[in-house]
Measured scan of single mutants.
Amino acid sequence: EAHAAIDTFTKYLDIDEDFATVLVEEGFSTLEELAYVPMKELLEIEGLDEPTVEALRERAKNALATIAQ
């Protein structure tokens, strides 16, 4: 499951495998979680700032909209 989540994140969020791995290690496994989890939870991840989190959430929401079509 972790590998599938990493693949999904790299494909749809335009991030590298290392960043995707950090997200999975922090407990995220779906685009929905990244799109809708409280921003505070993402900001608790070391190295993430508000602009990065906002961009990540926007990419996740856009990916979900694209997949739904």
Rank of each mutant, 00 (worst) to 15 (best):
E33W: 05
P51N: 11
Q69D: 10
K61N: 06
A65G: 07
G27N: 02
Y36S: 13
A2C: 08
P38F: 07
L64Q: 02
V53N: 01
L64M: 07
G27L: 02
E25S: 15
R57H: 05
L42R: 04
V22M: 15
E54N: 12
E26W: 15
E1W: 08
A35K: 02
I45V: 07
K40V: 09
V37D: 05
L42E: 02
K11V: 05
G27P: 01
A65H: 10
A63Q: 04
G27C: 03
K61S: 06
S29M: 15
T8I: 14
E1P: 11
T10W: 05
E17Y: 13
I15M: 05
L42A: 05
A63H: 04
A35V: 14
E32H: 09
V37I: 09
A63N: 02
A2L: 12
M39Q: 07
K11D: 03
A68P: 06
F9Q: 00
L43Q: 05
E44N: 13
R59A: 09
V24Y: 14
D18Q: 12
K40P: 06
T52E: 06
A2Y: 15
T30V: 03
Q69Y: 03
N62E: 11
R59L: 07
M39D: 05
A55H: 08
L23I: 03
L23W: 02
D49I: 04
F28I: 08
L23H: 00
T10S: 06
I45H: 04
E33C: 10
A63S: 04
L43Y: 07
I45M: 05
K40G: 10
K61A: 08
F9W: 02
E41K: 14
L43V: 06
L23V: 01
G27D: 01
A65M: 10
A5M: 09
D14W: 10
A63D: 01
A60C: 04
G47P: 03
V53H: 02
A4M: 11
R59I: 04
E26I: 14
T21G: 09
I67W: 04
E50Y: 13
M39P: 07
F28D: 00
E50L: 14
E54F: 07
D7V: 13
A5P: 06
E44W: 09
A65R: 09
F28C: 02
L34E: 00
Q69T: 09
A35S: 06
E32R: 09
T52R: 09
D18G: 13
E41H: 13
I67R: 06
S29G: 07
L34Q: 00
V24F: 13
R59E: 03
E32S: 07
V37N: 10
V37P: 05
G47H: 05
T30S: 10
A5F: 07
T21E: 07
K61E: 05
I45W: 04
I45D: 01
L31K: 01
D14K: 11
D49Q: 05
V53M: 09
A65P: 03
E58D: 08
E46I: 14
